[in-house]
């Protein structure tokens, strides 16, 4: 990995670039990286991007430091509006969110997500925290998946329990179940690269590998056979301007910078 920035900063910048001005979305808990990415996007190319900041109840927090809890009071008192949990579920159900960021204990090759159990539900090997807002993958217009741990245990062939439905079994399975306009998982952001889904098979594939990583690194860390299309290249490294805004206006304590 290059010395100039950390993998977490690379992830935040990669996410930020994908965010379109005017979109309205949400992040959940344990969301340092997407929070930083969205704030960075607001301060660069997407000033009218809006997002709800997890359990804090703060819409568009103007933070300059990343609190370790996205529910931190400081993310509420420097925001533009105090929303309620009911607002969140209403908007999620009504397909009013252009995007949401979602993580999981397991993410499979079709973008299905598990936060409930590893192993059998009745006698789990690992009891996870629970499904929280993941059923709303059926209501988000676009879902962005992310994980800070790109490993064969996280990126798996098939999730043990479907908390959030991605492309289900692939192909057109998803469109038979959910409403038109809920367009499913679009990207997966990890410390190693950016991934998307084949438009026909809906199988996860490599979009770009982060500088300093190789396709072999990515394949070795992925728990299923990962297609690498011809156009897949290297993620452009963070620019000086992106790093400057990130470090001076979004993450002044260097929380992401320390994740190496």
């Amino acid at each position: 990995m290059p010395d100039r920035y950390s993998w977490a900063e690379m992830m935040a910048v990669a996410i930020s670039r994908e965010m379109r001005d005017g979109y309205f979305g949400a992040v959940g808990a344990a969301a340092h990286i997407p929070m930083a990415a969205l704030r960075l996007a607001q301060l660069t190319h997407a000033p009218d991007l809006s997002f709800m900041c997890g359990g804090s109840g703060g819409l568009n927090p103007h933070f300059e430091r990343l609190a370790e809890s996205s529910s931190d009071y400081r993310n509420l008192v420097n925001s533009e509006f105090r929303y309620s949990l009911e607002d969140v579920v209403d908007l999620e159900t009504a397909m009013r969110l252009d995007f949401a960021f979602v993580g999981g204990m397991q993410i499979d090759r079709y973008g299905n997500v598990n936060m409930a159990v590893i192993g059998d539900w009745a006698r789990p090997k690992v009891r996870g925290p629970g499904t929280v807002g993941l059923v709303f993958l059926g209501g988000f217009r676009r879902t962005y998946l992310y994980t800070e741990h790109h490993s064969p245990k996280v990126l798996v062939e098939k999730v043990d329990f479907v908390s959030g439905a991605g492309w289900l079994g692939g192909g057109d399975e998803r469109s038979k179940v959910f409403r038109e306009g809920s367009d499913g998982p679009q990207r997966v952001f990890t410390p190693l690269g950016v991934f998307d889904f084949d438009p026909v098979s809906r199988h996860m594939r490599l979009l770009s590998v982060h500088p300093g990583r190789t396709v072999e690194d990515v394949r070795a860390a992925t728990g299923f056979e990962l297609p690498v299309p011809e156009g897949a290249g290297e993620t452009p490294a963070p620019t000086d301007e992106e790093l400057d805004v990130l470090r001076r206006h979004v993450d002044r304590d260097g929380v992401l910078r320390a994740l190496r």
Binding site: L85, T93, V135, G138, G139, S163, R174, V177, R179
Partner: peptide, 25 residues
């Protein structure tokens, strides 16, 4: 949230569009 909302108003149940479909819940 929807369950407690129904409980708060003593509604018989809440009806939802496709969300749980496709999940294991």
């Amino acid at each position: 949230v929807f369950g407690m909302r129904a409980g708060a108003a003593r509604l018989p149940f809440m009806a939802l569009p496709p969300l749980y479909e496709g999940t294991d819940l």
